[in-house]
Simulated scan of single mutants.
Amino acid sequence: MKRSLEERLEDGPVIAGEGYLFELERRGYLQAGSFVPEVALDNPEALKQTYRDYMNAGSDVVLAFTYNAHREKMRIIGKEELLEPLNRNAIRLAKEVAKEHPTEEALVAGNISNTNIFDPDNPESKDQVRRMFREMVQWCKEEEVDYINGETFYYHEEAVIALEEIQRQGLPAVITLGLMAENILRDGFTVEESCRILSEKGALVVGMNCFRGPATMQPYLEKIRASVDGYVGGLPIPYRTTEEHPTFFNLPDGGCSCHLPLETTFPTSLDPLYHNRYELAEWAKSAKDIGVNYIGLCCGASPAMLRSVAEAVGVETVNSKYSPNMEKHFLFGKDESLQAHNVSYRSKA
């Protein structure tokens, strides 16, 4: 039988592969800027392969790619009529891939996210947000997802609305927050305070995702872990954020000599600012050590990065057979069958 999310959390760390947004843009199937996952309708096979790559890299869950697939985003691009078909197809494709897992069928999670219209001083905006979440969660329920991931909320109250609408449908909820550079949620709550409240209200997992790399997320994960009795999630971006630049929205270019057409490196010029997979693995070990239970990576992460994270916390993935092994490399290997004249040349290569 397929274990539930809660059962898997009880057994050890759950690996959650995110990052489809940047990955599909990098693969050529999504537009940077609007960042709407039309790929679920336009190129379903490309989306299925992306789901598959992250699952085989260690993700216990196939997260339906409906991030930004809400009514406001669809309105902006003039395609509201595609809202429901896009949401339902993204879930159905995820379910198809989840069944392919060779040892245990992967979980399938529905996905709702920050709406960018929430205004704490405008009751109508709150009602609008609730209606947007309600219809998406209803489709998730009808498509029989295992749980719903509500993510990247930078307002506490918006996260609470998301949780309430998930609970209305009787589904488990993972709620993660995106912390801007002010180091506080935009309606004045600290992340640890917000997570404590969300956990007490019944969220199965609470924590943080996106915006921040390991260095600038980890201190807040420690605060959340100290404040929350339940399960905690951490899904940083794989970029070298710093105390001076704690999010990827304003990271400097790191010495790029070319002309950048945008005001910042975000979102299409972040390439030189990546952490390598070994640094991300070290973060994952640190996260596990402090008691983070739901571990993954967010925007910018590749399957290879996720595999390193999974292996770092003791998970053998479907594709661990392809993990690096330099023993037979013609220059750097140590296998006795290698050509000695090549191995002796490696310091000059």
Rank of each mutant, 00 (worst) to 15 (best):
S59P: 01
E244P: 08
Y239R: 02
R3I: 05
M326W: 13
G110E: 07
H275Q: 06
E193G: 11
N250Q: 15
E243G: 05
S113Y: 04
L163S: 04
I117L: 10
D119I: 09
H329M: 08
E25G: 06
C298A: 11
A40M: 10
K328G: 05
R131F: 02
R240D: 00
E336R: 08
I295G: 02
G333M: 05
Y54G: 02
E243K: 12
K126N: 07
V137L: 07
S257T: 13
N250D: 15
L86S: 09
G150C: 13
Q339C: 13
P272H: 01
V174H: 04
V174K: 01
F118Y: 15
C256R: 15
L86D: 07
D146I: 05
P123R: 07
G255E: 10
S194H: 00
P252Y: 11
R186G: 04
L82H: 12
A284F: 08
E135H: 13
N325M: 05
V292M: 10
A69Y: 01
E192W: 06
A106L: 08
E182S: 14
F189S: 09
G19C: 12
G178K: 00
Q218S: 13
E282K: 13
M74G: 00
E316K: 15
A310Y: 01
T66S: 12
I161G: 02
D42R: 14
Y67S: 10
L221I: 10
R75N: 13
K334V: 11
M217Y: 02
P238A: 09
P172N: 04
T317Y: 03
T247S: 08
G314K: 06
G333R: 03
D53N: 11
Y67K: 03
T50A: 14
K348L: 10
P236I: 06
M136R: 08
C298D: 09
P261H: 13
N111S: 15
S269G: 01
L273E: 01
P44Y: 06
Y54S: 06
Y294I: 04
E279K: 09
F189L: 09
V160P: 03
L198H: 05
E193M: 00
R27L: 14
E193T: 09
N114G: 13
V137W: 00
R130N: 01
S113N: 13
L83V: 10
A46G: 09
R92Q: 13
N43T: 11
S227L: 05
N293M: 04
K126W: 01
L331V: 02
L260G: 06
G188Q: 03
N111T: 14
K328N: 12
S344W: 02
L297C: 07
A287I: 07
